[in-house]
Nucleic acid binder design. Structure first.
Lengths: 229, 229
DNA sequence: CGCACGCTTGATGCTGCTCAATTTGTGTGG
DNA sequence: CCACACAAATTGAGCAGCATCAAGCGTGCG
């Protein structure tokens, strides 16, 4: 593990409180790997041998069942997976796949569990991490069950605008966005056409939110579902 | 808190490892309440002031958004809620409602957090609990996204048959079952008619699985979604 | 006996998916 | 720099799944 990667991991909430000696031990047996877009990092049904940490890019967590596939979550930089399976030492319920070029740190699962035994603070930090993940899952369930596709898109745009400002540059393919929003690519196209009537300009991978208020009228954001209510 | 309730809590995975003194302290400031069917135990958006433990009955966790409502999970005996919100000291994303008569233990949230500080083992036990909950959420997401309503019903029947044997007695109303399976009550009726062609007898609230193999053919259970694959 | 509630059944419509045909965009090699 | 090939995105047509609305049963309880 290179120094810059080590310090990136060190600054994550989960590892910040870990004592120095345990951390150097842990980072000594870990390594970092780069993946191109579309690579599978680990498979569903596989034992959780490693805890992965996303250091760059976006990772998609999804499950395949028969010939259909469903996204579970999209992970940005600094996110861990599959944490629950590592904690319980069970197989992973989903596979992980890069949506673009990614740098991924890999820590052997037994090391994680051993570190928890050594450091109560680390255990506590992971508890927080898992709790956050938990709320996110609930948010996602609500987002899927309680909203239609236009609303989901509208809320995604609001969240993106809160980060990037009114000029939004799509960080991944529309195909990926569709999967993230839980709809088919075709449907996203149509929905992007519809949303033009509600204060949004669409030019390829560039969106512009002209009338945030009108968009909020469609999105109806809530603090129970969205981080930016 | 009466003695029988105390010992019931004591035997749960989460509290088994807690040291005696902390546990008596904790149970001293906790109490138990009985609720009739259809009662709301706590509301969405409310601060998580208590950790609730279901000691009898079935609790529904759900979220309301506008005029629609979506079930997040159904909790049997021995389950805790809203654990993630208690850990992070944030408001709950869902409300909890009894589907039938329930006994619920209530532990003040600060007591839980204080207990974690006192006992690393307790923290570790809660981590396990939260990890399990996490996997359950993922299973639920997959169940909803990857299967149609007939499949979901078929899998529910298989799970019920694994518990009760081929003769199944519905533990709550069909309305509740429908919500649990993520469909409208009307649709559940129709789906119950359809499932007769696949080895199941339906008589009111009594189901009988005559041909488990045929039913499995419809359900296509997986260990990635169902506990009983 | 009759009212109320839960369940069923039927008719209809919407939402989003699938399949297929173009169009646009992107990168590669001549 | 252009031409070509391939992937991504759009567009249209048709359909499946499920919800909604509305009406009809059945059972249990006052």
């Amino acid at each position: 593990m290179r120094h810059e990667d080590t310090s990136a991991v060190r600054e994550l909430r989960a590892f910040r409180t870990l004592d120095e000696s345990t951390f150097t031990w842990l980072s000594g047996v870990s390594f970092v790997q780069s993946f191109p877009a579309g690579m599978t990092i680990h498979n569903q049904g596989q034992d959780a041998d490693f805890l992965f940490i996303n250091l760059a890019g976006t990772v998609e967590l999804a499950t395949r069942h028969g010939d259909t596939e469903g996204a579970v979550a999209m992970l940005g930089v600094g996110r861990l997976f599959p944490l629950a399976s590592v904690v319980l030492d069970t197989q992973s319920l989903y596979f992980a796949r890069t949506t673009n070029a990614c740098r991924i740190a890999m820590i052997p699962a037994p090391i994680i569990r051993e570190s928890m035994d050594r450091s109560p603070d680390f255990t506590r930090a992971l508890l927080d991490e898992l709790a956050r993940e938990n709320l996110e899952h609930v948010r996602e369930i609500n987002n899927q069950k309680l909203r239609g596709s236009i609303e989901r898109l509208a809320n995604w745009l609001l969240a993106a605008a809160a980060e990037q400002g009114p000029q939004i540059k799509l960080p991944y393919s529309k195909r990926t966005l569709a999967s993230l929003l839980g709809m088919s690519p075709e449907n996203l196209s149509r929905t992007l056409v519809q949303i033009r009537n509600h204060g949004v300009e669409v030019h390829g991978a560039q969106f512009k939110v002209n009338d945030p208020e009108q968009l909020r009228g469609v999105a109806k954001p809530t603090k129970l579902i969205d981080l930016v209510a």
